[in-house]
């Protein structure tokens, strides 16, 4: 199992490292940079969808929805990141405690 852990870690690391091996002339192009920025936004938005609204590959709506709405409200009010995350977790936990 230890070997599997190390192999999987190297597999994940290979992506991180490969990105740094692409020659500078390609990645410093402004057009490329705009697309890379858009991809970052696309990845994070997809991750909200998967983490917030799916369970075992099925779309589900549960206490994560009110937690995300609360988080959005707190972000709008420019609250610190840690406050946003802790509040979202607390609301979700409270809802699950009572329902």
């Amino acid at each position: 199992m230890t070997f599997a852990v190390i192999a999987a870690s190297l597999a994940v690391f290979s992506w991180k490292f490969l990105g740094y091996l692409v020659p500078e002339k390609y990645v410093s192009n402004p057009r490329f940079r705009e697309i890379a920025d858009a991809i970052t936004v696309g990845l994070l938005s997809s991750l909200i969808a998967i983490q917030g609204f799916t369970t075992d590959s099925a779309v589900t709506v549960d206490s994560r929805l009110p937690a995300l709405i609360l988080a959005a409200g707190l972000l709008y009010l420019r609250m610190p990141f840690i406050v946003v995350i802790a509040s979202a977790a607390a609301l979700s936990a409270l809802i699950r405690m009572f329902f």
């Binding site: 994070l44 938005s45 991750l47 909200i48 983490q51 917030g52 206490s63 994560r64 937690a67 995300l68 988080a71 959005a72 972000l75 990141f81 946003v84 995350i85 802790a86 979202a88 977790a89 607390a90 609301l91 979700s92 936990a93 409270l94 699950r96």
Partner: peptide, 11 residues
């Protein structure tokens, strides 16, 4: 609510 924490972190 840690699953909600992770979703809120991405947001």
């Amino acid at each position: 609510g840690l699953d909600s924490a992770a979703a809120a972190a991405f947001l």
